[in-house]
Design a protein around this nucleic acid. Structure first.
Lengths: 110, 110
DNA sequence: ATTCTATTTTACTAAAAGGTTAATTAACTA
DNA sequence: TAGTTAATTAACCTTTTAGTAAAATAGAAT
């Protein structure tokens, strides 16, 4: 896997378990066991998924007694949102707006 | 890699070469050789990257003589954009708006 | 001090990713 | 028809991923 931030973020999101963990964190901080509960998977597997999310900077961790709670760190999602910007014209555009855009491109060529 | 559409899309985007190929296609249809030109990589490697993009439905291909031109198919990006929706409150929100949101959540609990 | 609970680390596995070179296919060109 | 160009396939290699089971760590509770 490439190590640039955008690649790390996309990679972390390319797994349904990890996306589900993130969604679970939208309702607040959670322990590892809480996060693991919905999945038919051993704890070490969850630990690994959390490491991937942590390396992508999508979660932050702390310590409370023997717990290592996780919370959402949404900044990398903002970076993805900004990366998407260059494509919005292609998927958000009405045909009219795309047509305008293509005409604009042509004008710049002259 | 998981085979659900969102995972395929995120996986395809988790590589700088593939993101660069997509960006290159924003200026229109391109042949494989055209797409390969900026990279210090053999043609089979590019062919593989194109297959990943194609499986993720991010590009479409056609035939013109001995060429197999690619064009952008942006729909899966729209799906990502929609998936992001649930997180916008966390990364787009002013602190005030996030505060409102959290109060709203609390209200729902009662 | 011992035991229980929460989590991580280690060691191992199988499959997938991302690249290579060499061979192959397909269509144009002289 | 022979040769050239465009692209893919086949075979191979190395690293990473995603999981496991078993052992280790750390703090809480009895």
């Amino acid at each position: 896997m490439s190590t640039d931030p955008l690649s790390s973020t996309f990679h972390a999101l390319a797994d349904p378990t990890r996306r589900s963990i993130l969604a679970s964190l939208t309702s607040g901080e959670k322990s590892v066991s809480d996060l693991a509960e919905p999945f038919d998977m051993t704890m070490p597997a969850i630990t690994k998924h959390l490491k991937v999310l942590e390396k992508a900077n999508l979660i932050e961790r702390s310590k409370q007694a023997q717990y290592r709670p996780c919370r959402l760190h949404p900044e990398p999602l903002k970076d993805i949102d900004e990366w998407m910007e260059q494509y919005r014209i292609f998927f958000e555009a009405s045909f009219d707006r795309l047509d305008d855009y293509l005409k604009e491109m042509k004008t710049k060529e002259d």
